[in-house]
Simulated assay, not measured.
Amino acid sequence: MLRVGAHTSIAGGVHNAVDEQLEYEGNCGQIFSHSPQVWQDPNLDPDNAAQFRDSSAEADVGPWVIHSSYLVNLCTPKDDLRQKSIDSMQAELDAADQLDIGYVNVHLGAHTGAGVEGGLDNAASALDELDVPDGVTILVESDAGSGTKLGGEFEHLAGVRKRTDQDIEFCLDTAHAFAAGYDLSTPEAVDDTLAEFDDVVGLEDLACVHLNDSKHDCGTNKDEHAHVGEGLIGDDGMRAFVNHDAIRDVPLVLETPTEDGRGFAWNVERVKELREDE
């Protein structure tokens, strides 16, 4: 069964995310537990949390993912930022446990001078500080790779897994991977990129895909998302990706823009049109 949905808002209470997802005709999704632009702990009302759990189960919407704050930087060499990042991640993991959400998604962040190896060491040691609840898994997301940010190379994902004692899995963002230099614009390119991911990281540990087209070309390191099939990955690449045997059972979460009169509902429908057995 195709699992496709969108990043949805928790405005007015986390339970509202389920209704919003159903409006998009999605059946899985992602949320922020609070504003991602500030250091803030989730403040989940127990009744709303219970309603979220019940509504998700009743409507068969899932899996859900909590996306961590944009301020989290696991790779940082700065002690204060490291501790804030650890504390923020722990709060997200506890929120996921409260909501029966199975995944918390995080970017590795930027090493800001510590170097690739130092940054990966920092990220792994930060992950090792976390108390991960049973039933919750940390997903490390691929990145577009600009500046000193890590995660743009599949080797970075494999490197942090090798260093950490946590049982982490991964989220592949198609726009990020494309921007980082992994071509996805043709069926052959999709085959090659997913084969490389499998060789370096392992497709068995790919738990989620952020399905986004890209407004910028392959290898530019520019992270700007486009509607599915409307960017430089394009229809051929997106069709090949969503029909690829390697990801057919992986949930697809959209982070596409709202512009040109189109939003998440349009993109969910577009994915369903591209999927050949739906």
Rank of each mutant, 00 (worst) to 15 (best):
L172Y: 01
D97Y: 13
A6L: 05
Q30N: 15
F197G: 13
D236F: 00
H7Y: 01
K84V: 06
H15L: 11
A114L: 06
E117H: 09
T148I: 05
G145M: 10
I10Q: 12
V38P: 01
N243R: 04
R163M: 07
A207G: 02
C208T: 14
E204Y: 07
S142P: 01
E117Q: 14
V18R: 11
V209N: 00
N16F: 08
A59C: 05
R82E: 04
N105H: 02
E278H: 06
D87L: 08
L150G: 02
A59I: 06
L139G: 06
R262M: 10
V250E: 05
D165N: 12
A240V: 01
A17V: 08
V72C: 07
N27P: 01
G261I: 08
A207K: 06
N243Q: 09
D47W: 12
E255N: 04
G151P: 00
R53L: 08
G26L: 09
D47T: 13
D245C: 10
L44T: 13
E188Y: 11
A265K: 14
A189D: 02
L211W: 00
T76H: 09
E169V: 08
I138W: 04
G109N: 03
N105I: 06
H67M: 11
L232R: 01
D79P: 02
P63L: 10
Q21V: 09
